[in-house]
Design a protein around this nucleic acid. Structure first.
Lengths: 341, 341
DNA sequence: CTCGGTTATTAGATCGATCTAATCGTAGTC
DNA sequence: GACTACGATTAGATCGATCTAATAACCGAG
């Protein structure tokens, strides 16, 4: 039942003596170097599978000074937006022969510090990070000595960055709602400690101004960036007067929570109230949510690309990739009642 | 601006020569061995911080044959149920001085294979895994030679396992609904390729029988275990006749999708139709969902414990920890209309 | 002054791979 | 037949830590 015990690991030496060659030759076979004679290669491969050899990457890393592993630190794996970024990054790096080590901070700066330490001790070849909210915005203060770092979604001074133009995104949403005749538009925003929340809030104001809609302080409602926040935010919005007829939400999860609040007060999204989300996660499509597409997969790919370049050219000037969002119109937005009828 | 380049790594030798001691002594200081004289320890520590030394765990691992890292493979990080397990495991292992390397298979057996290979090559000290659906149920066929493995949530022949009694969980749900007078209870289940779905389905049947409720084939609706699946499943359920008055869902996410379907057809959960979920994720509390609490955090801790023991005693007999679920009653369930009025 | 007994320190081997530079055959060329 | 050229293979050093066993330093006891 039990296979031969793991204790005494099979190493290059064992393979070498079994196949009657030297360690070096076995190593050449493992790395697919072409100079090995076909007959020896075959013999070595047979020994490898017969003895059940497992490559020891750690040992190789020590010698080559490369781990072929990159660390990916996100602030909340539960968030579908991040999940899509993660999958894109894993795929992209995987096809470049790199392994992704995933770490979750749960927005906790201490955990982030621990993860960074682990990754630089490992050591990883590079780090992709979405810094925790409220955390230092300066790369230097992150930790002692780090492998190349690229930030995504939330920028970090002095390092490469991949993200989306949040200001433009909010403006798209407002333009759309304004065109539908809405004049009282709430903004159910995320915590203002998040740079993305600040930017989306700014875009909201600029969008209103551009469309000649007066800004109302009370329509800006700060909430936690989750389902519950959306629910409570919209519930609050409905108590205001004059009541808003539409809302732009910090992200899709917030928007879905807002829709829940709408329905539980007997209103139907699209018919009685318009809702716009942010990110275009999978559930947004299913829920018929109009949203600002920030293409998470593309952010992930851009970040991975930046990191690969940075690893190749550690001293190259810092770069930024800011993607342009686009609006996806679905059923959760419609013409304002009061004006259309 | 730029710190001294990472290129030439500072090593033990550099510290040793700077502090005027040997490599061995520096190593003793790093590992907090007490035999070092306070004065030398201080001198070494000063050199360490002055030269900006970063510990090279990979090199140490090679010598000690332990990586202090364990691999955690889950089938879907987006699922809040897993997210809670992950956090519990990370905390538990972290306090035991171990680092957790997280991998996501997205229910893809190939990705699972790749991850297992990576982890055994790393090599990790142990692996915690929730196997992908449809995948082999036999540990031996997972990969060549693996470090100690513990499965959670979905069992694997021949290895330790931590999970919950799903059969009992479904029975709890049925008992509750039956006590409220419901006689037509749908089961919106996950894919039957999942062992947990099979068990919950079995518990559903047994629960009905126990309560003297006839089993109706058409009330068992198989769906994807996500929000959309719940929506569609409940939509289907409402077309049946006689129409069910309650439903047990495969998990909370499915249940939340089902609630969405209810509301969009003008029914209110709890008032017009009763819904029970599974797992008791954070959103269940917020959504007022009655659910079977499978205590994800406890599953995580149990699995981590099993792994720690297994690493200490690789040849100990295989163990299983099956947790007992309990029912959390909230607003989404109520007495059956037809009977109570 | 020597000896045993601590305590603090260290030289050298070691983990399992890769890299460098050298070596061994064998064939080709003049 | 000597010499070069080239393909296949290998011995030995190396990556950066830890471990073992030995050594140096010191102190008090006899």
């Amino acid at each position: 039942m039990m296979e031969p015990p793991l204790k005494d690991r099979v190493t290059l030496v064992d393979i070498a003596s079994d196949a009657g060659v030297s360690r070096a030759t076995v190593s050449l076979v493992l790395r697919n170097v072409s100079s090995v004679a076909p007959s020896t290669r075959k013999r070595v491969l047979q020994s490898i599978s017969r003895l059940g050899y497992v490559y020891h990457r750690g040992a190789a890393n020590l010698r080559t000074q490369r781990s072929h592993a990159i660390g990916l630190i996100v602030s909340d794996i539960t968030n579908p937006f991040f999940a899509e970024i993660i999958i894109a990054i894993e795929d992209w790096l995987g096809s470049a022969g790199l392994v992704t080590i995933l770490g979750n901070t749960s927005e906790n700066p201490e955990k982030q510090q621990r993860l960074l330490k682990s990754l630089s001790e490992y050591p990883a070849d590079g780090i992709l990070i979405c810094p925790t909210q409220c955390s230092i915005t300066d790369a230097g203060s992150l930790a002692g000595r780090l492998p190349p770092v690229v930030a995504f979604t939330r920028p970090l001074n002095g390092v490469d960055y991949a993200g989306v133009n949040n200001v433009a995104g909010s403006e798209l949403a407002i333009d759309h709602l304004a065109a539908l005749g809405h004049r009282h538009i709430a903004f159910i925003g995320g915590p203002s400690s998040l740079s993305s929340a600040q930017q989306r809030s700014l875009g909201y104001r600029q969008g209103l101004e551009k469309n000649g809609i007066p800004f109302r302080e009370d329509l800006v409602i700060e909430q936690a960036p989750n389902r519950k926040g959306g629910f409570q935010g919209l519930t609050t919005a409905l108590t205001l007067s004059p009541a808003p007829t539409a809302a732009v939400c910090f992200n899709d999860v917030v928007a879905l929570g807002a829709i829940e609040a709408l329905r539980s007060s007997g209103k139907e999204p699209g018919r009685d109230f318009s809702i716009v989300g942010f990110n275009n996660i999978a559930d947004a499509h299913f829920g018929g949510l109009t949203t600002v597409d920030t293409s998470p997969a593309k952010i992930g790919e851009a970040a991975a690309d930046l990191l690969l370049h940075r690893i190749k050219e550690p001293t190259a000037p810092v770069r930024q990739v800011i993607l342009i969002p686009r609006l996806i119109v679905r059923e959760s937005t419609a013409r304002d009642h009061a004006r259309s009828e």
